[in-house]
Design a protein around this nucleic acid. Structure first.
Lengths: 200, 200
DNA sequence: GTCTATAGGGCGATAGAC
DNA sequence: GTCTATCGCCCTATAGAC
């Protein structure tokens, strides 16, 4: 069971959801057992099916939340009509790293579940128009870069998100986990600087 | 079954290994079924246990291969005493992208399996000394950068590997899969250029 | 709504014939 | 070495009492 008063005032339904978020994110859909979720939430296994019908349906709810969390952070910034390109870079780096410091395995969970069942979950993102026709991409195009703006987008996401995806490996190269977090916090200011040099 | 003459002259053991590579990489350990592997290799389910004792043992062999493939590509380059830093950047980008164009889901497979069972597989990498004390890191240190050399390493791996990890999502933003591969090939020359500008 | 008990099916692994 | 048949366990889901 969770420590502290985390679940004191939660409804049964919300207790199950909270446990499902944790277990699915840690283990992935296939390795997660409904028994784990029931135990983690301190309720009976039968109640899981009473409230959510099936493991699959419960997972879909969790997945929808996680996808929205991961892409809902960046899409509004990309689409902001009121900010310049450089300001968007600052905001993306800062808000993404803040998000990922609290939810470090959000990206690898979402990416690996999408890869395992692309037909089901890739459409959930539905980002093609919202990204390719975003203000951000138009602003990149107006800079008359020598390379495709996709390269810049890939680089921005790569240097921001990758250290969290590869955290289990990379953090072993550093002294300890706190030191790794310190590096990540530094990157909130470094990433926009690096990307700006790619715009020339 | 596989098309072409892929398995014509393979021993039964190697046929099972080949199928195991495919099924484990596509589905991950938990979602893969030994029955899938048996069917894929065109042999009987009982033979899998006859040759490999268990699903777990077979997986360990596949995992060892994949980890060596992923890290065996970069470690020798990082450790090369005969090349300058800039040449190492060229080689890493080129050899990694060539590797990942042929094995696009190698990184996400390895990273997500390590994350699911770090106590078991993280030690398999065992890269701490080989990376932190490598010629590459020493060469970075001698450049008197204003930031930790780890940032440069993270950026190099990030812009190289991330587009493959996020491929199921990012390739949807592009016209088609071939166009995505074209972008990746361009990056073999672009990545060293971008990283070099970070050294100033 | 919440519980206990169990059905029903799938999975990894093995026995034993050839 | 290779097969068929099957065991025994574990997992999801449900029936039915309270």
């Amino acid at each position: 069971m969770a420590k502290g008063k985390k679940d004191l005032d939660l409804s049964t339904e919300e207790k199950i959801m909270e446990a499902a978020r944790k277990v699915f994110t840690e283990k992935g859909y296939a390795a997660a057992r409904t028994r784990d979720i029931a135990e983690e939430s301190g309720i009976n296994l039968a109640l899981l099916n009473y409230y959510f019908r099936s493991k699959e349906k419960l997972f879909e709810l969790v997945m929808l939340e996680k996808v929205n969390k991961l892409f809902g952070t960046i899409i509004p910034i990309l689409s902001d009509e009121t900010t310049e390109l450089e300001e968007k870079l600052d905001k993306i780096a800062e808000s993404y790293i803040d998000l990922l410091l609290v939810n470090p395995d959000l990206p690898i969970f979402v990416l690996s579940e999408i890869r395992r069942r692309p037909e089901k979950f890739a459409q959930l993102v539905n980002a093609k128009e919202r990204v390719t026709k975003s203000v951000f991409m138009k602003q990149l195009l107006s800079r008359k870069l020598s390379v495709s703006p996709f390269h810049i987008l890939i680089n921005l996401l790569g240097i921001t998100v990758f250290p969290f995806v590869a955290r289990p490996v990379l953090s072993k190269l550093i002294k300890n986990e706190e030191e790794y977090d310190t590096l990540m916090k530094q990157r909130k200011e470094l990433i926009p600087m690096w990307i700006k040099t790619m715009l020339n």
